[in-house]
């Protein structure tokens, strides 16, 4: 059976809101534990890495174009970190490869 998309959205909104609001509304204390702070510092890097690879390779529907776009994104973000520039050059790379190859 297919789950309901709006139930998904309500579930995720509730969890995300509780995470954001509890320290402001209830606990009202700053977190001092080095382990927790370090853990939370690393979370976005791991999450975004896991979500990006290998999804970026398959997202365009063609593995070769995906690999080219991925390489361009890596190179551009290492040379010049600007977020829009990285996105535009990666998309252009995929588009041009689909025209040429």
């Amino acid at each position: 059976m297919k789950n309901n998309v709006y139930v998904y959205i309500i579930v995720m909104a509730l969890v995300t809101y509780l995470v954001r609001v509890l320290p402001l509304a209830v606990f009202r204390k700053e977190i001092r534990s080095t382990f927790i702070k370090s853990f939370l510092y690393y979370v976005p890097y791991v999450t975004l890495s896991v979500m990006t690879f290998p999804a970026i390779i398959t997202a365009s529907g063609n593995t070769l174009y995906g690999l080219i776009g991925f390489s361009v994104a890596l190179i551009v973000s290492l040379i010049k970190g600007s977020l829009p520039l990285v996105a535009v050059s990666a998309c252009l790379a995929v588009y041009l490869s689909s025209l040429i190859i």
Partner: peptide, 10 residues
Amino acid sequence: YAMFIAVILP
């Protein structure tokens, strides 16, 4: 995904 890379890599 390219934007995610631009966040984590620099």
